[in-house]
């Protein structure tokens, strides 16, 4: 930028005062507003139909991207309540093991084992995490980081739930296209529901906890109890992701608690923009294909995710989504400073 100049940002005419209010006066403007959203939704819904074009490999990549997107959505929900999770693998793994247990030991079909595992897993996660919710600060991060690693060790050491072998030979899902469709629809539904949810008064209370928990207490609401509800709601898509993935690959084992399921959603959420649900999904759909292309690098990929994570936390904390949104809705121009005009 030239000296004596500043960058001026002006909202486009369509965007009025507040973030959610738009003044629409023509179809063109409606298209301008809806275009990106429709494009994304249609793209996701049509993607599984193009199996012949993309090939089964990229369909699988899309499926994994959806799984990570679900974990990122869950992460963003927790973040909106002021909780930072370093171990999405915990939720994922609990859901995965529950469905494995239900299917293998109780003989329930995927139609029952997946929803049941989703709910039971979320309940279990909430109960385990409940005591920590009384505290603020980094405790939640500490405990979510520690839990998946400990659980992995315990399963390895004691040999429970299949031990190092895992539980294999689970009932299969109808096919790849089916799995992809289910995951795409759930991602879209969860994104939509979460967005709507935070507009309700109940969602407002949860957001208020992130803002100032003392005032929530002084407002007559139990912060711990509301945080617990938030953890439960946030755990649902994550445990579902675990359950779906388990049935898709017909095996559940210790890798369900692997670091990858913690660091990938975290990076996706931070790259996309913390606190924005669409951002997390966007981040997942950028990161997962990217990481597939870099498969040859092996574990170096985790280093790359971390580097990316660091880069965004320090360099662009608002994330890609907010950045793009700003560029889309604002003009920017360089104008000379007032003093120089005189």
């Amino acid at each position: 930028m030239k000296a004596g100049h500043r960058k001026e940002r002006i909202d486009r005419g369509i965007k009025v005062r507040a973030d959610e209010i738009f003044a629409i006066s023509s179809y063109r403007e409606i298209l301008y507003l809806m275009g990106p959203r429709l494009l994304a939704i249609m793209g996701l819904l049509l993607f599984p139909l193009f199996r012949d074009v993309t090939g089964a490999y990229w369909q699988t990549v899309g499926f994994i991207a959806c799984i990570i997107a679900l974990l990122a959505l869950s992460w963003n929900f927790l973040f909106s309540v002021g909780l930072v999770s370093l171990g999405q693998a915990f939720f994922f793994g609990v859901g995965a093991y529950f469905t494995g247990y239900f299917n293998h030991f109780l003989g329930l079909g995927p139609l029952f084992s997946i929803p049941l595992a989703t709910v039971c897993g979320a309940v279990l996660c909430t109960i385990v995490i409940f005591p920590v919710l009384r505290l603020r600060g980094i405790y939640f991060a500490l405990i979510t980081f520690a839990l998946p690693l400990f659980l992995m060790r315990i399963i390895e050491a004691t040999g429970y739930l299949g031990g190092t072998e895992g539980i294999s030979g689970l009932q299969r899902l109808p096919g790849l296209t089916f799995s992809v469709y289910v995951s795409v629809v759930v991602v879209l539904a969860v994104t939509f529901i979460y967005l709507r949810f935070f507009d309700t008064d109940y969602g407002l209370v949860l957001r208020a906890i992130h803002d100032n928990d003392m005032s929530v207490l002084a407002g007559g609401l139990s912060v711990q109890w509301y945080k617990a509800q938030a953890v439960f709601i946030a755990a649902l898509p994550a445990t579902f992701a675990g359950a779906l993935m388990t049935h898709h690959y017909r095996i559940v084992g210790m890798p369900a608690f692997a670091m990858e399921y913690s660091i990938l959603p975290l990076t996706a959420a931070v790259v996309g923009g913390t606190g924005t649900f669409a951002g997390g999904v966007l981040g997942a759909f950028i990161l997962v294909p990217f990481s597939e292309m870099l498969r040859a690098f092996g574990t170096l990929r985790i280093v790359m995710y971390s580097a990316l994570l660091l880069l965004f936390v320090v360099g662009l904390p608002e994330g890609i989504y907010r950045f793009a949104q700003r560029k889309y809705f604002q003009f920017e121009r360089i104008v000379p400073l007032e003093e120089e005009k005189q």
């Binding site: 957001r207 100032n212 007559g220 609401l221």
Partner: peptide, 19 residues
């Protein structure tokens, strides 16, 4: 101790939500 990231009137939704 208000909720800085909300509109002023939304601040009161939280206590109004109390049992």
């Amino acid at each position: 101790r208000p909720f800085y990231n909300m509109e002023a009137y939304k601040n009161l939704i939280v206590p109004l939500y109390s049992p």
